[in-house]
Each structure stands twice: as C-alpha cells, then as structure tokens.
Design a protein around this nucleic acid. Structure first.
Length: 204
DNA sequence: CGTTTGATGCTCT
DNA sequence: GAGCATCAAACGG
C-alpha cells in the first residue's frame, strides 16, 4: 500500500491554482481536501492574510525567522505556534516574496476519524474534531515539523487534494476571527450550512 | 444557552 | 514586558 490518501478520485491541487492573491484563492479552497497520512478533511472555513500591507498578517513587518515560510513559493505550508500551546496551518499563496497565505480554520472530517479521536481526546463529539484552526492541526497531527512542506507535492506528508467535491452553497464572507487589527476586512469565508465551521466570533 | 478566564511559551519591542 | 490568526473548562442565568 502506498501512503496516499484514501479519498476516492483525489488528486493533488496544481500550484497554478494557488498563484493568485490570498483573497482570491481563499474561497476557492473551500471544498478541497487537506490530508495527512490516512487522516483527511474537507475545507469548510478559511481566512486570507496578505503580506506587509495587511496589519493583521504575520507578514506585516516583513520577513522574520518565524514567518519566513510565508515569503516562499505558493503551495508551502506555513505552520506557526501560538498562545504557548497551539499549532495552526496556512497554505502560502500568491507571488513568491509577497508573504500571502490562507489560514485553514475548519474541516469536515472525511477519513481517519479514529486517529483524529485519539489525537484529540478532549473532543466529545466528532463535530468538535476539526472545527477550529488549532483543533484541525491537532486532529491531523500537524505541528512545527511540517512548516515549509509543499502541499502540492504528492510525496509531502501534508497534501492539498481535489476530489471533485464542490460546495453546494455560496460561501459567506465576514471579518476574520481573533485579530485586533484590520478587523473590518471581510476576509474569512465559510460554508454557512456546515456544522463543522468554527464557533469563533469576530473581534468587534 | 451565554460569557469569562486560565493555560502556556514564543516573538518582537 | 506585552501581545498573541486558541481552546476548554468554569461559571451564571
């Protein structure tokens, strides 16, 4: 058996689909699949973060040791550590050097649920496995060792896949969650009827 | 239900 | 020293 996903018909997303700005790419990621080993989920909530021009972005102050991945090639996974205990995962998008990325905020679990439950013993219901950016990282086993991997590479430990599944409803956009600056930019997108969207509330 | 608070450590000022 | 792209438990009604 290969280490490929167990998602029928899934193929890697081409890097050319990630070359536009994060604001354009983010809603287009809804419905795609994020996979780590045998664990996978469909993306139901995302947020766009731009480069230096976005005061809420980690890239706002230019490249540093922490955010260096954001300034790399589209398709790299930017994984960061926050609040002293949580990991969150982004897909780098847009031209290299600009620092744009899309934060994956929630997944609808598709495969490897037993592994996810083991990785997230505090989650009481399956709908709580991946309904938040740090929750899905924990459920899939994503941490700092995955920073900089290429989600377009079939051999990467973290992959972005397209299985042909498409949202049946129009994505809703609104303010990003958990930020203190640029709070009005409506750069969060989610599928309004999906129970796996996070429960975070916009600041303000 | 809703709101509040403690945990915990890295990054940049 | 302040702030953090969060989460879960502990409250109160």
């Amino acid at each position: 058996m290969s280490s490929g996903s167990s998602i029928p018909g899934a193929r890697p997303v081409g890097r050319d689909h990630l070359m536009a700005s994060p604001v354009e790419v983010a809603p287009a990621l809804l419905g795609l699949v994020l996979a780590v080993g045998g664990r996978a989920g469909r993306i139901v909530e995302v947020e766009a973060y731009l480069g230096v021009e976005d005061p809420a972005s980690h890239a706002h102050r230019g490249p540093t040791a922490r955010n260096a991945t954001m300034f790399g090639t589209a398709g790299l996974l930017y994984v960061y550590f926050v609040y002293g205990m949580h990991w969150c995962a982004n897909v780098v998008t847009g031209p290299e050097g600009e620092g744009g990325a899309v934060l994956v905020r929630a997944l609808s679990p598709m495969a490897g649920l037993d592994e996810m439950r083991t990785a997230r013993p505090r989650a009481r219901r399956d709908r709580d496995l991946c309904n938040g950016p740090a929750k899905l990282a924990q459920a899939l086993g994503i941490d700092g060792t995955h920073n900089g991997v290429d989600v377009c590479d079939p051999d990467s430990p973290v992959r972005l896949l397209d299985d042909g599944g498409r949202p049946t409803v129009e994505p809703v956009s609104g303010p990003r969650i958990g930020i203190s600056r640029a709070v009005d930019a409506p750069w969060r997108w989610y599928l309004p009827d999906d129970p796996h969207v996070s429960k975070g509330l916009p600041t303000r």
